[in-house]
């Protein structure tokens, strides 16, 4: 991972256009060939520096739903509960956090009613209550890191 990789990630977090040669612009700006841009992106994905390259879908605009959920998981059962939660394909992200509520995951479902179904399944599998915190208002969503 070099300076050029960082610059590439910084620029490509904002996205590419739907054109015949969408990497031409960034290649020109960085004085790289398009082939080498693509080669670098492949390597960054293979190395796990990028989780993927592609469309970032908005589940709600696809008719689905998204919510943030917290649980207080006893330490001795933590790994087991993480497995039970992660086994649900609706769980798109899951983070361990330092708090009494120590597991925080995002549910992203194709249909709104699957949120309640998935939460009910997780409560019954783990025997633990879930705290559902759907967003009531979005003030900003950027998620761009300057590297």
């Amino acid at each position: 991972m070099d300076e050029m990789d960082r610059e590439l990630i910084n620029r490509l977090q904002d996205g590419i256009a739907v054109t015949d040669r969408p990497f031409a612009e960034v290649a020109q700006a960085l004085e790289l060939t398009e082939e080498s841009v693509v080669e670098r992106l492949r390597r960054l994905v293979d190395d796990g520096k990028l989780s993927r390259f592609g469309p970032l879908y908005n589940a709600e605009r696809l008719g689905g739903a998204v919510t943030l959920v917290a649980m207080a998981v006893p330490e001795e059962r933590y790994e087991q509960v993480a497995e039970q939660v992660n086994a649900h394909p609706e769980v798109s992200h899951n983070y361990a956090r330092e708090h009494e509520l120590n597991m925080w995951f995002v549910l992203s479902t194709e249909r709104p009613e699957q949120i309640e179904q998935t939460l009910a399944a997780i409560e019954s599998e783990t025997g633990l209550p879930v705290y559902n915190m759907p967003r009531e208002k979005e003030y900003y969503i950027g998620l761009r890191f300057q590297l």
């Binding site: 990630i9 977090q13 904002d14 969408p22 993927r52 390259f53 592609g54 970032l56 908005n58 890191f145």
Partner: peptide, 23 residues
């Protein structure tokens, strides 16, 4: 793809960083 971008179904077509791996 363009239609899904215009409607917001696709937020963007982009590099999705794994920020842990990026320090």
């Amino acid at each position: 793809l363009q239609r899904m971008k215009d409607s917001g179904a696709i937020r963007r077509i982009a590099a999705i960083p794994q920020h842990y791996a990026l320090g």
